[in-house]
Design a protein around this nucleic acid. Sequence first.
DNA 1: ATAAGGATTTAGATTAATCTAAAAAATATA
DNA 2: TATATTTTTTAGATTAATCTAAATCCTTAT
Lengths: 219, 219
Amino acid sequence: MTLTYSEEKYLKAIFEVSEAGNRSVATNDIAAATKTKPASVTDMLRKLSDKQMIEYRKYYGVSLTEEGKKAALMTIRKQRLWEVFLVEKLRFSWDEVLEVANELEHIQSPLMVRRLDEYLGFPKFDPHGDPIPDEFGDVKVRPRLAIAEMDVDSTGQVVAVKDNSPAFLRYLDKIGVYIGARIKILEKVEFDGSVEILVDNKKTIFMSKDMAVNIMIMT
Amino acid sequence: MTLTYSEEKYLKAIFEVSEAGNRSVATNDIAAATKTKPASVTDMLRKLSDKQMIEYRKYYGVSLTEEGKKAALMTIRKQRLWEVFLVEKLRFSWDEVLEVANELEHIQSPLMVRRLDEYLGFPKFDPHGDPIPDEFGDVKVRPRLAIAEMDVDSTGQVVAVKDNSPAFLRYLDKIGVYIGARIKILEKVEFDGSVEILVDNKKTIFMSKDMAVNIMIMT
DNA sequence: ATAAGGATTTAGATTAATCTAAAAAATATA
DNA sequence: TATATTTTTTAGATTAATCTAAATCCTTAT
């Protein structure tokens, strides 16, 4: 089954929205994720349904079929491999990769993807800590917790961020938080959910709840 | 001026056709180069003319403006840099790169192109021996001659091939001709233009005129 | 239980890139 | 040079992806 550039974008968006919340995904959420209008989404849903990529009941949202999920995972695999390439080989910073990777992910060449994976040393995680599906669509899961969910005095290592917006990533750079940093929770403020943490045993930083829910830790 | 994927393809095609022959390029030749129909070409010519990328007089063919030529050279630059990447880093053979490079060349990111160039060590020629324009569109020219144009007993080094079709490239691989090979003309057959050559001072091969006009030598 | 409000779909257009078939222009040939 | 052939353009459609505005369906709060 061959998919257009747009169909790939929608399948990936549906997968990502369904990862975040429930299995059944709303039209409005897909529209937000793809930066299109709900009416455009409905059109595309019919097409994807015809191609057996999604389970679609009018007015009741969609879920991916096995085939649709596989396709979404392959697009995500390509996106994340290219992100690793851009950061490790072309010295992009982690806030610069998303836009370009979102174009590169649609290049069609199974041989290129396999060779790229091999060339990069079969990485398991992208620069934001998200897992890279293997060629069968299998992903390595790491049990992880947002900083906001951790107890005082508990420790761990930053393994991922939930928000990949350049603004957020640049701020993390600035305060010295990166994938792999070791952190310890020093204090949690009940009132507003903000936290104080120790980074790499040397730097104390204070962050709002908004930040603390977007930084993922493996303990 | 921002160009669509298709506009880039047409500009590149016009450039390549004009390189091969005259400055004024025919609608039919563009159609052949882009694998579209002449009617589609005419439509696109109007668009490119509106964008000041070409000089277009109905029924009299087209030529690129300075801006159009610059755009074509930038696309060619990207194509050839990606070809180097695919061959040198991902171990593609020279007959496998064209298709993928023709997709990659449309990725928009000046930063990526600059970094890719740097990462590859600022290569001046692609795997087929064709020059890679620099960021200003300047190309390094090498004086070169087709094997068919060389005299008996003259020697030189293979620097490029004119035909990039997989069939041709695979055949060259098979008979041991590659970019950089040293050759000597042993004999030229008047009747049909075929030649006998010595490759790397050790292997004698015979080739038809069709081959001999497509292999370029620097003496 | 129903009316209001929000979400979703449908209807009807638009834009870009392509096509086929027919018309028009340029070129080649007898 | 007049006609035949080839090339190019125009006219009119088609397909994919999108949009706005209007209609329809679902949910929720009174």
